[in-house]
Simulated assay, not measured.
Amino acid sequence: MSDLMSIKGGRDGLRIRFDDSAEWGLLLEQLEQQLNQNQAFFNGASLALDVGERTLTTEQLTHLLNLLQHHGVVAEALSAGARETRNAARTAGVTARPLPRYPDSSPQVSPDAEALLLIRTVRSGQVLRHSGHITLIGDVNPGGELIAGGSVVVWGRLRGFVHAGALGNVDAIVCAMELRPTQIRIAEQFATTPQEAGPHRPEVARIAGAQIVVESWEAFKK
């Protein structure tokens, strides 16, 4: 996301990790900037917060939670090393956890560093959201949603909503064995599936010339 915070995704959802040495007001400013720039990715998301060893007052934490709520984001849990911060989180009704262990102490910036592989069906009303790439072995039914910061690969039928490059990555692509989404978005570009669908074959969608183009897998490989 920035040099002061990082976002990671996994099977348990999204986690935002803050640099605990940065000035708190600057962190909130950059967080609000990211929320404004990436509304399509964050709106409706639930996530966990990691504030490191920082001690937050109830007022500071309330400001953070209100900022997230204003942008349609729910904070489900908070990890902190300081007992005072965890107590403030519990007072605010947020699940508080001890600080998780990381292999190093510095935030990792690249949202595409981790890919998510799942074997399942995404049914109507379900949303699968990840900060990096998503590979799904299964189908996305109409009414289901895939939202990824990176590329999306579906080894099956993609017939719901898909948004690749939701954190602004214009090089992201969408691949599926049967690419028939109700709407497809890559970064800020979007398109809908033609009513007269062609033959079912593996296809790739990408941005070319400021618009989304769809081509067969064989043509894309050349």
Rank of each mutant, 00 (worst) to 15 (best):
E196T: 02
F190E: 11
A219M: 15
E218F: 00
I184P: 04
A187D: 12
V214K: 03
P199Q: 07
E178A: 14
P202I: 03
Q211G: 04
W217P: 04
R201C: 01
V204I: 07
V214C: 10
S216D: 15
Q189C: 13
T192N: 14
A191R: 15
Q189I: 08
I184K: 13
A205Y: 08
H200G: 06
A191T: 15
P202T: 05
A219H: 14
A197D: 13
T192V: 15
A219V: 14
P199E: 12
I186T: 01
E178W: 01
M177Q: 07
A208E: 13
E215I: 02
P194W: 12
T192C: 14
V204P: 03
E215T: 01
T182L: 15
L179R: 02
A191N: 15
R201N: 02
P181F: 10
A191K: 14
P202H: 08
Q211T: 06
R206E: 07
T182M: 13
E203S: 01
I207V: 12
T193F: 05
R185S: 08
A205L: 11
A187V: 07
P202G: 10
L179W: 07
A197M: 15
E215D: 13
V204F: 04
R185P: 03
T193A: 08
F190L: 13
Q195I: 12
E218P: 00
T192P: 06
V213K: 07
R206Q: 13
F190R: 11
A219I: 10
G209A: 06
R180V: 06
F190D: 09
Q211M: 00
Q183D: 04
A210Q: 15
M177T: 02
A210R: 09
I212R: 10
T193G: 02
Q211N: 06
T182A: 14
P202C: 09
E218M: 00
P199F: 05
I212K: 07
A187Q: 09
E215P: 00
P181Q: 12
Q211S: 10
P202R: 07
E215N: 03
P194T: 12
A187K: 04
I186V: 08
Q183Y: 03
R201T: 00
T192K: 15
A197P: 09
V214W: 00
Q189W: 05
I184E: 03
P199H: 11
Q183M: 13
R206H: 10
G209Q: 07
S216Y: 06
A205V: 11
L179P: 10
E188N: 11
R180N: 08
A191P: 08
G198E: 00
A187L: 09
A205F: 07
G198N: 01
E178Q: 08
T193D: 10
A187N: 09
T192L: 14
Q195K: 06
Q183K: 06
A176D: 02
R185F: 02
R185A: 05
Q195P: 03
A208V: 05
R201Q: 04
W217M: 15
W217S: 13
E218T: 02
A208S: 14
Q189L: 12
R201K: 06
I186R: 06
P181H: 13
H200Q: 09
I186D: 11
